[in-house]
Structure formats: structure tokens, C-alpha cells
Design a binder for these strands. Structure first.
Lengths: 123, 123, 123, 123
DNA sequence: GTGGTCTAGACCACA
DNA sequence: GTGGTCTAGACCACA
């Protein structure tokens, strides 16, 4: 379910982190459900366990998941997890808008782009 | 006129690059005007000349500026320069919108954020 | 009566141990009274029996409880049990004070914190 | 200046982290001063660079230090750094007091302990 | 030189 | 089995 692109500049641990956030927000992993273990996911993706652990730890620090030593890693209460992920994406979006503003792009252009992208995806 | 934030994760050469693009778009450096020399800017910012050179090189590769050996670096024809900068920011913005889409943010939320940011700045 | 928080970093066996100590000090389990059996408590808390056994074993080693093979686990003479628990908490408290000292916290701040916490609880 | 105790249960990276926090609070490393590089400290302590990096990263996440890729790691603005470290120690202290409260220790005992520890250290 | 990422492989506490 | 820590050693981008 998780895809890694090794040609991508984005570090592997970050890609894993983003993919997990995406799956959590989509409800594939509901609140308190168990995520694949560090080692299982490492084997599945052909990646070092440390790399996966780094992804998990960062998600834990930001409150999206919690891990119980000896038991596994679990999704935090949905409200929390989703909210945190949302905030991260909003922050990213705000930065892009500010850059766009400084680059003299107009409001209309941005809104149009949004329409374009949202209507191209089926929802 | 150019500000570098060393605590920022963004590499210094990238910050210099972005600042220059901003100043070009704003018309501070019009077409065919000369940019500060690599060495002058390096001293001014307290930065390694290699770092400035890297910023200039990337701007040259993308067509925003051109350099004349022995004379200096100059801004490309305005249409070109501005257009290229715009495209870069649009690409960045598109990425943010796609992430936002996957994170289940609604169109309305994004549009609202834009309104908010654009009205907070004086223009 | 015993509550386990799986999201807590503290290992389960330690939480069980602390909860039992708390209940003993409070007099819920008086001297020579029988504690719930390992298996019963394991089922009740939805926890592996090994985990409970570890908690009991550590309490026995430190002299808070004693176990009679084939009969069960019992609280040691109150003076002993309470005294041992007290000593443990004093040691923990001392460590915190030393850290606070090194971090330049003043005596006043610490005393104030104590006042605050003690007056917030009803006793 | 930094001491690691390998017999200690506390993980090495945590010990390094604590030692650094201590030195920062004491003013040995003032705001914006450069910390020893990851590799230098690793050699000095006879420890793997990854271990040091883990300590540095956690300090960075909590805002005590900031690192500039290619340049080094630096102490955050003193107010920030010190304040964060203080908060951490206060939280730790509060936990100890709460435990002590539940274990029936009296306010007087705790205050006495504080007096004892503070007067034993020269300041 | 400096931080950041990653692999391969080991060992530990806990459940 | 599960997360957590650590070593030895490599490679990369950046300054």
C-alpha cells in the first residue's frame, strides 16, 4: 500500500512518513489500529529497519501515532491524528501562497489552479 | 536588501536564489540591469562565494539571468525572467494543493486561506 | 481498581507495580491481606500473565509483598511495606530535585510547586 | 566536559542530551555559540556519530538548538533554550511530587529534602 | 569540514 | 515478536 520512489530527492523516511499520514487520514488505519511493525514494513519495502523507525518516531513525536514497546505502533485518537496532519498540510499550503503572493501571482490564478486540480481528481 | 536566515532549513544558496527572484519580479532589478557581483554579495551577506555562485548558476540555467564573462551577471529580458519565476512558483503551489487534496482539505478551506493571506498584505 | 495506560511510555509491569504500591500505602490492601492472583489480575487487566508476575516478583524482591507457594501473594507487615515504598519515592524525588538544581531552578520555585500540587488535591 | 556512564541504564544519546542541556543552562554554551560537531563529539566520547546525532536532533526538535547543514549546530536564543530546559525539569519535578503525594509523603518531608540538597551543593 | 541519510547487523527490555 | 538503542561504515548535499 506504501510506495517508495528511490529516484525522488525526498528521503525515504520522509516518504514513508507521508504515505502513512495519507493512509491514516484516508481511514485505512483507523484510531488505535495497529500499524505494520517496524521490521515487517522494512522487509516489505526493502528498506533498513532504522529508516522505518525514524519515520515512526517522527510521527510519534508529532502525536500522530503512539508506540508501545513490545506491542507495536498504533494510530492516535482519530481527531488528534487527522488534525495534526491537516495542520501540517495547511502550513505547507500557506507557505506556497505567500511565495506566490511575493511572486506577484494573482488571487484568481491560484483559485483557478485549485479548481483545476480538485476537479481532475475524482471525489 | 537580501536577507538570509541561517536557522532556516532552506539552504543558503536557495534563499539567495529566491530573494533574487523576488527582487527581479518586483522590478528592483529590471531587465538587463547588472546584479551585484558574486564577491560583493558574498561579503555583504557574510557567506562563502561558492554559495552565491551556486545561486547565480542555477538562475542562469533556468534562464532568469545571464552572465557575461569578465563583466558580470545581468537580468534576462523581463518577460522571460518573470515568466520563469512565475512558473516555478506555480509548480510549487500545485504541489501544495495536491498534498492538501490528499489530506482531505476542502476547496473552500484553501480558497479562504488565500483570501486571508492576500488581504493581510497591503497591495 | 488498577488502571493501565498503554500509551504511557512506562512499561506495563512497572505501572502495575506502582498501582499496587499505591493501594498498599492507602491501606486498600492491609498487612497480610491477599493480593489478587497473578492469573486473575492478568485477565482483569487484559495483560500477559508474565507481565503481572514480573510486577509481583519485583515487589517481593524489595520486600513489599511475600508469596506463599500454592497459596498466593500477601502484603508484608505494614511498617515494612509502607517504609519501602516511601523510600522509593523519596529516592525518585531526590533525583528530580538534583536535576532541578542543575537546571538552575530556585528553591522557592520548587517549594511553590509543592504547595500548588498539595493544595490542589483534597486531603 | 561531557561525561557518559555506560553502566547507567539511561541510553547514551539521552545522557549526551542531558549533559548538553546542563552546559547550555550553565552558560558554558551561550546563545548562538557553536556546539562541537557531531563527529568531533563522537570521537571524543568514543561513541558512534549516529548516537550523537540522535541527541542533537532531539534537542533541535524541542527547540534548544538549531543546526545549519554544512555549518554546524548552534544554541538557540538563550531565553528560548533555557526556558525549554526549565520546563522539562519542572515537568519532571511535578511528576515526582505527585508520586510522593500519592505515597503519603508530607509536604514538610519534601521541603526538607530540598533544603538538604540545595545546601549540600555550593552556590 | 558539517549535518543528514542510509545499510547491515547486533543486542536489549518488554510482552 | 515488538520497539529501542547502538556500532561501523558509507555516501550525499552544502559551505
Amino acid at each position: 500500500m506504501i510506495k517508495i520512489d528511490y529516484r525522488n530527492k525526498e528521503p525515504v523516511f520522509k516518504q514513508v512518513q507521508n504515505e502513512l499520514m495519507r493512509l491514516i487520514v484516508l481511514g485505512v488505519y483507523p484510531a488505535d489500529s495497529q500499524l505494520p511493525s517496524v521490521r515487517v514494513l522494512a522487509v516489505e519495502l526493502g528498506v533498513n529497519p532504522n529508516t522505518i523507525q525514524k519515520a515512526y518516531r517522527e510521527l510519534e513525536i508529532s502525536g500522530v501515532i503512539y508506540s508501545v514497546s513490545g506491542k507495536g505502533s498504533f494510530v492516535s485518537q482519530k481527531d488528534n491524528a487527522q488534525e495534526i496532519v491537516r495542520e501540517k498540510h495547511i502550513a505547507e499550503f500557506e507557505n506556497a501562497v505567500k511565495s506566490a503572493f511575493y511572486a506577484q501571482l494573482t488571487k484568481q490564478e491560484l483559485v483557478l489552479k485549485i479548481e483545476e486540480i480538485y476537479s481532475s481528481k475524482d471525489r
